[in-house]
Computed example of a mutant assay.
Amino acid sequence: MTSKIETFARYHIPGNPLVLFNIWDAGSAKAVAEAGAQAIATGSYGVAEAQGFKDGEAFTLDLALTNLARIVGVTDLPVTLDMESGYGATAEEVGRSVAAAHAAGAVGINLEDRMPGQTELTPVAEQARRIAAAAASGIFVNARCDVFRGKAADSHGPELVEQVLERARAYAGAGANGLFVPFTTNRACIAAICERSPLPVNIIWTPASAGGFSSRDELAELGVARISHGHRPWAAAMDWLSAAAKTVLSGNAPPYDG
């Protein structure tokens, strides 16, 4: 019998990417599931902010697992959890945290290669140990690679691509299942990474209005295997809520029916 983890892994097809519209709680998970999603993914920023915390593991592991259990309880879809840096100072601690997420019902996780609050990337060998500890649980490990973070757009080129690919090879060797490369919309870089990465590549959606993409097909043609939306769904929902509240509290009609 195919497990949810195996099913989730099979959704990562270069050129036919899995689309994840990130959620933050059980209610948003139900809404996205009912819209026809193949899988459910949390985004750490939205999860933390929705509960009054800041991103960066200020939302504790216990709270994240409680939130995860509620999400898993309202959908039969595979659920992947954004675990930021893995909730552990050491590889062993990361392994225990990820095993707890697996036990709570997650089929996958995101694991960053920066520690909370740090700008420098975790050394490759150390990050590979953290990934190996996470992968030992059997969960789908989407290894985030922050090489492009904080780099000016005009520097996004072959040198940074090679840095990403060095980490991709190390992460694949440690047991990662996917490679998440945020912070770039450079088509040539994305295409080169997708072509040469040993792991299926996840790109975060950036709208055309912000210098990003016009459609899913554009990323599919570059070889992307997974598209996520990060904090944008949460932010858009909060923008609508704030604007609607201002409308109602100013004495005008609500901007909705029913």
Rank of each mutant, 00 (worst) to 15 (best):
S214H: 11
G223A: 11
R169D: 10
R130N: 02
V47L: 14
R187G: 13
V98W: 06
R130K: 11
A143R: 01
D25N: 14
G175F: 10
N186K: 13
G117K: 06
I190V: 15
P198T: 04
M1I: 13
A244S: 15
F21M: 13
V32G: 03
A100D: 02
T122N: 02
G88F: 07
G86H: 01
G178H: 06
I40G: 04
A253H: 01
V107N: 06
A244G: 10
I193F: 09
G117V: 06
A35N: 00
G138A: 10
T90E: 08
H12C: 06
G157T: 11
C189D: 12
E92P: 06
V94D: 03
V74S: 05
G108V: 08
Q118F: 10
A143V: 01
G173M: 07
F213V: 14
H156F: 11
D146C: 08
A143N: 01
N110Y: 00
D239R: 13
A188V: 15
P254K: 09
A168R: 03
I40C: 06
L219F: 04
V19T: 14
C189I: 14
R167E: 04
A29P: 08
S228R: 01
E57P: 05
L219C: 09
P182N: 03
L165I: 11
E6H: 06
D25K: 07
T66S: 11
W24G: 04
G36P: 11
W240F: 15
